[in-house]
Design a protein around this nucleic acid. Structure first.
Lengths: 350, 350
DNA sequence: TTGAAAGCGGTACCAT
DNA sequence: ATGGTACCGCTTTCAA
């Protein structure tokens, strides 16, 4: 079984074994100079005893934990997993460990993640909030360690951020649907009072406007950002407005739910109703028909956010605040457009 | 911006502020006695200064980090996300933080996760290995902290474990397919030299045998446990053996790939070919037709593993080694059986 | 009840 | 190049 506490070798064990001081052990083990034979003796003792430095002791002394946290709304949403992957790559390459925190889209949990920085268990935080309340801004301002926000924050708040352009992304989707001949385009959104919810709503309206289509509030519905909610919302909308010929869904999970509802009511996709999602997750290729989806650059956002955080952690001088934005692009697949019923056709437009 | 290092209040700051010793501050803050006015003064000072205990110092002193790690093969596989969710619940309730580690099904990374326990950043590990090599057993034996394995380990190794019964699960699937009238049942497996791969292969063979069907090696193919591999394998198999009337896929990702391949070759599911997956992930309900899948109790395994680990961490006496097993059950949906083309029908059998 | 002080396991400065 | 030692922030004896 595992060794009892107090059994593990420390630098002092090594020091005694090698007949040198703890200071020398520390130096040798950290690769700083030393006479060849000293180095050899220390190395030998360390290897023989299976010495591993205590991370907590090192952290306490060094003032940093070499851990960073990523707090996201929902670990069940593939889009965040895509971010995790890229963030992981970057932070590990920089010698940090990644802590994951699924907040359940609960502002209180997001605030808790921010406040938790004060206990120094994490050197920095990548926060992907779904809402940004005044309380968020206040905590961001007094945060105990560097934070990078994936999402939109007001200009006044001096915090690194990487945002997607959801508005343009939604507009892109609507224009594509209109170009494909759709006229009664429904919106299945997440909560109205979230940042992505509001932005996608705005982009939807803007898209209709640009195309000269009327904006019928009856075509818009709000729910949660998941498949169950999406299915229910789609069912409702279809019952209320049977003539809908397209559904713009605020993310891929909602879209998957919508596809289910459409099937349940005997509609063909895309012949009767076209569907477009957002996030371009793996789900878009797993469902049927393959889902046309707005790619908001989640991988890119993850990578950039991680790079910003690392830069701020490692930099000696304080780098200026960065506000990055990633451009959306539409990835066309079978769930809309005219090429119905075939395998996935990739066509990308900016 | 965030405060400069060395700025954060410590117990000593509080002590000076309240006019007491650091010992008293520690006591009061930990809820151990104190004269009422002392308590009040300390509390007031702590609140005023926004004191938060340094987690690293506490860990060093206390000999534990209050963090546990879950190392899984692939964070992109929904089945592990389901485990994460339950593990998270349990460990957080017990006051631990959860660290996630995606090993990429690389034995070297799994071993690294085991060895990393020696640096004491984590108090324990839940390991979900895809292979169990002699090196694994050796590291398990000398692990620096408690480990719970999700998977099968040899009897001799005294380590807590929770395993699924993949063999029975696979057999269940095959018998179901046979009962539905299928006779040429293909197997799309993951790597042959992995524990789940081997077990599912065995169960597949056993199922055929029990049903009195011949075992045709041409119907078996090995690949990776992901959708891309599943699609390629299915395409291959269908070309090689056009008469296949069912595909048993070693997990849901492979099954999703298979569905894609079937569509690509113009076959109808389940009319022409029935498909069964394993893991009963969210994916099974997201794809079309909804996927019949063997539920190996991933949520249950996650919960149990976390509970075993916490028990071992918190227990004063060393609890005896537990070897738990979770029973599989088949969740029938549209991708096989006779109720094709309708919405998901749940029917559970043990 | 309270304070002084000894660590926990490293790191880094300062002499030597 | 090396050893002695103060210190990171907190917990926990041990005396007073």
């Amino acid at each position: 079984m595992h060794s009892r506490p107090g059994t593990a070798p420390t630098i002092e064990t090594i020091a005694r074994h090698a007949g040198v001081s703890t200071a020398s052990v520390s130096r040798v083990l950290r690769g700083l100079g030393g006479r060849p034979d000293t180095v050899a003796r220390v190395r030998a003792a360390a290897t023989e005893l299976g010495y591993v430095p205590n991370a907590m002791a090192r952290s306490l002394r060094g003032g940093q934990s070499r851990q960073v946290t990523f707090a996201m709304p929902d670990i069940g949403n593939p889009v965040y997993i895509a971010m995790v992957r890229r963030i992981q790559q970057v932070v590990r390459a920089a010698g940090y460990r990644l802590l994951l925190h699924s907040t359940g889209a609960d502002p209180a949990e997001e605030l808790a993640a921010l406040r938790a920085l004060a206990d120094r268990h994490s050197d920095g935080l990548i926060l992907c909030p779904i809402r940004v309340t005044p309380a968020h801004l206040e905590e961001l301002a007094r945060s105990a360690a560097p934070v990078v926000v994936i999402g939109s924050v007001p200009e006044e708040v001096p915090v690194d951020s990487v945002r997607a352009d959801s508005v343009t992304g939604a507009e892109l989707a609507v224009r594509h649907l209109v170009a494909a001949g759709r006229r009664r385009i429904g919106l299945l959104n997440g909560p109205a009072d979230t940042v992505p919810g509001a932005a996608r709503h705005r982009g939807y309206e803007r898209g209709l406007e640009v195309c000269g289509l009327p904006h019928d509030p009856a075509l818009t519905s709000f729910g949660r950002f998941d498949a169950v909610s999406g299915e229910a919302a789609a069912r409702d909308l279809l019952a209320r407005v049977p003539g809908v010929d397209a559904l713009f869904c605020a993310n891929d999970l909602i879209a998957v739910g919508a596809l289910r509802a459409l099937r349940g009511t005997g509609r063909d996709v895309p012949a009767d109703v076209a569907v477009v999602g957002v996030d371009n997750t793996d789900l878009a290729e797993a469902c049927w028909p393959p889902l046309t989806s707005v790619d908001l650059g989640s991988q890119e956002r993850g990578r950039l956010a991680a790079e910003l955080l690392i830069a701020r952690l490692d930099a000696s001088g304080r780098p200026p605040v960065s506000r990055l934005a990633v451009q959306p692009r539409l990835v066309v697949r079978g769930s809309c457009g005219s090429t119905a019923g075939t395998t996935a056709t990739h066509k990308e437009m900016s």
